[in-house]
């Protein structure tokens, strides 16, 4: 299939299922990235999440633009971004035209009452997975592959401490601080 068309269809699918804010798309995008062999590595996806958090605009659009551009240049970026925006555009047009009491509909409410807790479970699992990958450099179940690097644990402990003490701190500052910690720990201290 043509790459541009594949990007459009893939992000259309992702856009159709993004409930509960941008982060809920991470596992879906990861599955697609692995399936199609995009981005060269999943680490690049995680790096991009941080960049997206530090630039304006919704995460969904940022990530689509980025992957689209990385895979197929400007037209890829346009196709992926259009794909991720189109489902909500069409749905909102439909609701605005015919169905303004949409949010009070019992079937919609039933659907969401099941989707929301599922998304929470997904997000926590994704968070745990990312934490494992960034600290022990493998997933939870490959005990023999665990990498123990004290520098990682210090960074994780400091960041977690900051997050617990100042939960409302702007994520950009946490990311910038983490970048400084990373540079200090990995450039200056060799193990």
């Amino acid at each position: 299939m043509d790459k541009i068309w594949l990007l459009f269809i893939t992000f259309f699918k992702v856009g159709l299922f993004t409930f509960g804010g941008g982060y809920a798309m991470i596992p879906m995008i990861e599955e697609e990235v692995l399936k199609h062999g995009w981005l060269n590595s999943v680490d690049l996806l995680v790096d991009f999440i941080a960049i997206s958090e530090s630039t304006p605009g919704p995460f969904a659009i940022n990530i689509a633009t980025f992957i689209g551009f990385d895979e197929a240049g400007l037209w890829g970026a346009i196709a992926a971004t259009l794909g991720v925006v189109l489902p909500s555009f069409i749905i909102i047009l439909f609701i605005a035209r015919f169905f303004t009491r949409f949010a009070k509909n019992p079937t919609v409410n039933g659907f969401l009452s099941g989707v929301k807790p599922m998304v929470v479970g997904i997000l926590v699992a994704v968070g745990v997975g990312l934490l494992c990958r960034s600290t022990i450099h493998t997933d939870l179940f490959h005990l023999s592959d665990w990498v123990f690097d004290p520098r990682t644990w210090v960074i994780a402990a400091v960041l977690l401490g900051i997050r617990l003490i100042r939960p409302k701190m702007n994520p950009i500052y946490l990311i910038l601080f983490a970048a400084i910690l990373g540079i200090v720990a990995y450039s200056l201290i060799s193990i």
Binding site: I155, L159, I175
Partner: peptide
Amino acid sequence: QGVRIAVAILV
């Protein structure tokens, strides 16, 4: 290396 940990904590 540091930023990836921050992302995990944010998610």
